[in-house]
Design a protein around this nucleic acid. Structure first.
Lengths: 109, 109
DNA sequence: CCTTATAGCAACCGTTTGGTTGCTACTGAA
DNA sequence: TTCAGTAGCAACCAAACGGTTGCTATAAGG
């Protein structure tokens, strides 16, 4: 209802952002724009397959979308909306904690 | 650059919040106030030692602080400040992604 | 003293995870 | 057709993770 699968999205975003390699991929995409797994493997020091696995996870979390391009190339583009959901989740959590009457109030906006 | 050790704090918070048991512990603390590991083990369905390990990790992330009480009891209390840091981290990330100029600005290598 | 209840270690175990290597399939150019 | 480049799939491996059981130590109450 008020908390649909917001927690599920937040969990996936947290798990995705908890890994340094994944954050490196996201940073590379943010710095250089959409790129392929092979391209990303060239910039980072891990193999293309490892990148591909991370991209699958990131796509599962919605942080990245696959854009099939010409000549069998697949470019990945950043998507910021799930991160905003996670941000709201954090804000709601912090709000509940800071209220010393958190146990009494159960309302969510 | 403009990313101090903010990323380190964010990583620990993300890793801590990615686990359902850990979120359960935090929810229990938010609902019932500060509690001991033994007390938490009674509410959740995992052993006290598992709780204790999670509390060590949560304390490492700063999400929880240990308060030694009377009779060798140790109560754990929530701390929301590191979550606000992670929130800022998410906000900064989303801001960079959404700005299509960010790619050009960071392309100075 | 003895009992009770708590916290802190320390192994141990099954599963997950991050990463590698190797192979196959498809596309476009020489 | 052959070749170079890229994506996808599948094992495989070492390390980390979440959780358990078992033990020790210490503090208060009988």
């Amino acid at each position: 209802m008020d908390t649909p699968d917001l927690e599920a999205v937040a969990q996936e975003v947290f798990a995705a952002l908890a890994d340094p390699s994944r954050r490196g991929i996201l940073a590379a995409l943010a710095a250089g724009g959409p790129a392929t797994a092979t391209d990303l493997a060239g910039r980072l020091r891990i193999s293309r397959q490892a990148i591909a696995k991370h991209l699958v996870l990131l796509a599962g979390a919605g942080l990245v979308v696959a854009e099939p391009g010409e000549r069998r190339r697949v470019r990945y583009r950043l998507e910021s909306t799930p991160m905003k959901v996670a941000q709201q989740f954090l804000a709601a959590l912090a709000r509940d904690w800071d209220g010393p009457l958190a146990a009494l109030q159960n309302r969510l906006s």
